[in-house]
Design a protein around this nucleic acid. Structure first.
Lengths: 194, 194, 194, 194
DNA sequence: CATGAATGAGAGTTCATTCAT
DNA sequence: TATGAATGAACTCTCATTCAT
């Protein structure tokens, strides 16, 4: 079924990456269905034909982008054992999450929506998500023996941080103070871990 | 842009409602971009022409559906003062949220995604969300004086409940026990309100 | 896989037929690969969209055209028992074949080429061809008992007539006299049947 | 239209020939419109760029191939005066035709179709065809004086042989015995020449 | 008012040809 | 001279919207 498409040799690696980067960026900004392949090509500074030298389809670009995003940005490793105490660790978790969200500034929901409409992507997403949950649970266990329901707690904690990040990034509700929200979230997580 | 479109007079109210109900249902099930107007017409048992008697566009149906959804389902009033204590209130909040999610079983993310791509919808969504947050904050204040940062806490609480509902509905992570997750969420909310 | 496409109700039968007629005509004139769907639409006096209301694809139009062509034109029934003698029958066979070829004036080879590239069409073509061969053989048997290898002879006869028709229609070789060619062909067929 | 293209000098003669040979082979196997220039390049073991060093266009390769085919294969000289009698000559004619068809095993119709869509090719084809017809007529005249309408007869004979070859090669009709068909064809040709 | 056939702009994708290396 | 990545016009097909009936 695939006709052309070659991994790469030298500077074309850069080209393929540029297409993913720029294409994914555009998709996140405007929504997958609101941009055309021509848009992507123009934005990436290549021809429409070039896109199909490296990707099977428009969707293929999205998948590549999501893959990268999930792997490198959204679910980075957290098993850094350098933290002295829980407070520091949690603060670091929050900060890095906000940093990551700021950096990508994706329309996160667009992504999540598309992910959930595609079996393959859905599976990938959940695997990554689960990996991080387990990794956090592992970390918390070390620090604090006899923790009950640690997986569930880790899940909740990650959700709290994710939600906080969104609020900070998009700042949808003018009457919520960013600082207070961050503090409260941190305090709640501490309470959870008590 | 507007050509024809009449609010309603008698039994055609029912027709318009049927289009919204069935159309929105389909959109939530399969995704806005994956269904056609013909699909909606067939599913609603009307002709494609009829759709444009009551709606300006395909998107117009979505907006009507979201409006209804936000108003009646997702953000119902919570200022019921019948609760005896916080625990009961929280449990009720959790139960009704899960019930609502179960009832609609929408592809929630699809909705959220589309909402965020449309200024108008986005504003509407946030207003509704904020209304409920305020309403919960108000309720909590009554019950417990001297609560600091109550808006932020209310926001976090609603997020926790929403997240729990999703997990229960879609059950993405096989290793998370529904019961434990519910209990833990409830416990955390109690802690927040301490 | 098929999305839309409805047989027909009333005047749309005419529309579908017009698309086949005109589309097939164009294909035969210019070659399947040298015309676009837009060309067909314009030539048939409909919109491109209309084409896909009645046909799955561009190729589908070709198939419909070929079907009709094979059934009605190229391989008409020959079991007319009204002939008094072989000579008359053969002359009639030749005349009607030339008439048919003149009438359609298709680029016959284009057709045959496409037919041979498509399994389904190929089968259909051979079935029709074979039917006529058998029908002619049957006819000849009646007229003349104890005919050996009658199927093979019928096949050769039909080929001779087909070839004659082409030569007459396209008149490729200026130095061949049409009349003589026709006469010689008829004489040869008579000899075959001796 | 013409940009670059050089006849040849030394070993690149071989390269050009390889492109024609392999390209034409592919075209005959899969059909002109079903293969790409990239396919040809790969199959011939050269780069796509190289093709345009020797040919103006994709079609140019086809023309070169057809030229060679017509000249060397399809219409070989038949003025060999080594035959003792008509029967032997006819048998040899039949055998060599079948051999040729077997050897190339081209999708003959594809060729013929394309030839007829191109004025230039069409003319070339007819010239070659006519040359052979004349050459056969010449041969037959020598062998047998006082032959009337010898050109027309030669034409018919060549057609009979061509048709036989196709039937033998593609064996489309299971109920036709190859041997009988060959015998009958030979017998008919003998009768023609009586 | 209701219908559903008709419309046609615009989508994703292909591939003959070019050209920098 | 040889390469193969790059190009972009042109293709087939879709579908939101219109409108004659």
């Amino acid at each position: 079924m695939p006709k052309v498409r070659e991994p790469i040799k030298k500077t074309s690696i850069a080209k393929k990456r540029k297409i993913v980067k720029k294409g994914f960026e555009l998709m996140c900004q405007k929504g997958y269905h609101h941009i055309t392949c021509a848009d992507i090509a123009k934005y990436a500074g290549v021809s429409t034909g070039s896109i199909y030298q490296y990707f099977y389809s428009k969707k293929d670009i999205l998948i590549a982008g999501i893959n990268e995003y999930l792997t490198e940005i959204m679910f980075p490793k957290i098993t850094k054992e350098k933290f002295q105490d829980k407070e520091a660790m949690i603060q670091e978790l929050i900060n890095s999450s906000i940093e990551n969200h700021k950096k990508y500034k994706v329309q996160h929901e667009e992504l999540v929506s598309i992910i959930h409409q595609d079996k393959e992507l859905s599976k990938l997403y959940q695997e990554k998500e689960w990996e991080v949950t387990k990794s956090l649970a592992e970390f918390l266990k070390k620090d604090n023996k006899s923790q009950e329901n640690i997986l569930e707690k880790a899940h909740i904690i990650l959700d709290l941080i994710d939600n906080l990040s969104h609020e900070v990034i998009y700042h949808k509700h003018k009457d919520l103070k960013e600082e207070i929200l961050t503090d409260e979230t941190a305090k709640i997580i501490i309470k959870i871990l008590k």
